[in-house]
Design a protein around this nucleic acid. Sequence first.
DNA 1: CATATGTTGCAATTGATTCTCAATTATTAT
DNA 2: ATAATAATTGAGAATCAATTGCAACATATG
Lengths: 147, 147
Amino acid sequence: MKPEIEIFRDYVRKKRLRNTPERELIIEEIFSSQNHFDIDELYLRLREKNQKVSKASIYRTIPLLIESGLVQEVFFEDGHLHYEHIHGREHHCHLHCLNCRKIVEFQDRHLESIEKRLGRKFNFDIISHKLEVYGYCEECRKDKRGR
Amino acid sequence: MKPEIEIFRDYVRKKRLRNTPERELIIEEIFSSQNHFDIDELYLRLREKNQKVSKASIYRTIPLLIESGLVQEVFFEDGHLHYEHIHGREHHCHLHCLNCRKIVEFQDRHLESIEKRLGRKFNFDIISHKLEVYGYCEECRKDKRGR
DNA sequence: CATATGTTGCAATTGATTCTCAATTATTAT
DNA sequence: ATAATAATTGAGAATCAATTGCAACATATG
């Protein structure tokens, strides 16, 4: 599979934008972890490695990564957006523990047929979906009983 | 079915909070329409009717309405949260047109079984889910072909 | 290598949401 | 009823995420 940096380089070329060291650092950092991230977190991770990229550049790069299909917005929580990289990963959804805020990823092939059915029913050309499920995880269920 | 105002009154009593004319105006306004709303919109709707409620009060009332099960957050879009009232309405999800931003509500009973399966698989006590589907509606598909 | 144009960091700005505080109002106990 | 207690209000200030203006700088192209 083509590495994400290559995909980004192709994207900027096609759009007549420019690639820069800052953008490469951002991409590298995002793909160096499997976790969701938010802007602040990403900024701090870069700072800790003494790679100085301004927050403004991060904010400006994210839309390009989304446009090029490398990253997506996942949810809005704690007053800001959270993202994840999606290059070469299966589409998945998130199961959130409402108590400890743990997030478990899952896939469910039935969502495809829901999409198909919806598309037919409402005459939509379906592009994507986001399913977020909320509940209490095993540990927190135990805690709750004690209350 | 018990009217929403009653539910809210019970809620504040139980929580040893207080009901106020402002809160009743907010609830009345929210339930006077079937549409999604955001804070600013709600504020303007109230102002137009010469019912003066400050934005601060709206911001302070929303969490109470969510806690009492009358309202829920639906999605974050255009830089702010959008809500809808849910008292006495079937649970539903949203299908968004990415072009004209039209929103169609739909229900799909298969989501229940997805929830059940997830609960079993990950040992979660599932409380709720949000499914947002994105695509292009009939009209916008036509437009797109022309581009 | 020169030009045109995109990008950077910083600081200022915008917009949503929360908070502070004095005045007001709803509940509870007298 | 009335007073005492505590929650709520509106206005504006404060906060926080996200965007933007700008001057200096960097990249791609001819």
